[in-house]
Amino acid sequence: MSLDVIDDILHHLKTYLFHKQHDKMIRKRVYSLSVECLDNILKHSDLNKEEHELLISYPPRFIVEKIAENFIIHTGNIILNKNKDAIIPRLDKLNNLTIEEVNKLYKKSLANAEISAKGGAGLGLIVMAKTTKQKIKYDFEKINDKFSYFAMQLNLKK
């Protein structure tokens, strides 16, 4: 996935939300969660040629679903197994925190965050937990010894 594709998706999403979602706050939350999800997908998309072939069976996934007044965002991307081992404890930790604790962690992380070589501040998952106020559902499917497919589901309730 490239930056241009992301810009294009976000542009369409903005138009869709403008017409389908009148609550400005919800509109903005869906947009903001989508940016974080797409940034994550992009961050993990620098695969080499051989690994690129995996994309045919395991393409990046980004789906925004509106059910009544609620939104569900589904994402999926190939991830290195070593990164998976780093993400799982972070997700589990977030899912075990109360909203107040998530907010506290966000403030602490803002002050201490380091920008990675890929430009991320490591705040994306915390922002997702903070914005949805729900547990982040996730799943990893093993592809081979090096890669897994990382699927995530964010629920945004009105």
Binding site: K28, Y31, S32, V35, E36, D39, L110, A111, A113, I115, G119, G120, A121, L123, G124, I126, V127
Partner: peptide, 12 residues
């Protein structure tokens, strides 16, 4: 109006 999480770091 809007900023992403890595911008939040720079704003901080």
């Amino acid at each position: 109006d809007y900023f992403n999480s890595s911008s939040a770091k720079f704003i901080s």
